[in-house]
Design a protein around this nucleic acid. Sequence first.
DNA 1: TCCTATATTGGACTATGTCCAAGTCAAGAC
DNA 2: GTCTTGACTTGGACATAGTCCAATATAGGA
Lengths: 144, 144
Amino acid sequence: MSDLLQRLRDRGWRLTAQRRVIAEVLDGEHVHFTADEVHALAAERLPEISRASVYNTLGELVALGEVLEVTTDGRAKRYDPNAHHPHQHLICSGCGTMRDVRITADPLAALPAGERFGFAVSEAHVTYYGRCPDCAAATAVAGG
Amino acid sequence: MSDLLQRLRDRGWRLTAQRRVIAEVLDGEHVHFTADEVHALAAERLPEISRASVYNTLGELVALGEVLEVTTDGRAKRYDPNAHHPHQHLICSGCGTMRDVRITADPLAALPAGERFGFAVSEAHVTYYGRCPDCAAATAVAGG
DNA sequence: TCCTATATTGGACTATGTCCAAGTCAAGAC
DNA sequence: GTCTTGACTTGGACATAGTCCAATATAGGA
């Protein structure tokens, strides 16, 4: 994530302690935290960080294209730092766990011109749902 | 939508005035209202209808599979009565207008086994984004 | 070191959705 | 037609997620 900090500095960002810890929290694979989770994790390192700063910073990162905002269930939005590698999401319908996945076909090709209603279609998001191994095992034990 | 009312009656639903007007509001093509919109439209016919009844009824319709719940932007959920015809959604990134669209490929086929992480994948939702004709025209006029 | 534009803060505020106890009523029984 | 009863509706309190703002603090250049 120091790459990220460097890119942000290059764009004229002031590198505050708050922004640093938020960037650190967002470092890793298959990271999909809510704003509140980011706040809680950031507060472990910087206890006085405010919710407003977390929302501000996440919003800026999204606007800069460094982080993706993912809304799946109508609950809190999740923030995905894997913004430079196109991917889709696979979500467990049991526990809500989310994985990044790569697909082998371009979903835009599946939308015929006659179904575009004159829109200039530019993007497609695919979300897969299923039971993760843990939830499947739990169901097998509980439900037979 | 009288079909819907009949199906609900067959399942033991009590057909109250509230449920009738909600079913009427949800009648039509490309209907994707929020709960508040459903409430406002229902209140035009039945002024004393409460928000709680709207939320209750929409939740029950979703549980019965008669209406789909669509979350796209982290704002209010939308309710899509076109539940018996598989489809995806096309959304205008300008004004948020939503259309139902049918696609020509099964998105599940695009997710290789190696990307399933042991999940029992059962469903895929595809959401397309683009500018609708109206917003494209507005941009052309305003922005050049 | 100083300056200033930018960032942070806490708290009020909005939007969306859930829950509950009390009152109401649809529809079957007679 | 009227009675009965359990399901339905209601208003309002509550919960959660997110936004906004004026006051304060600070990063980084001069």
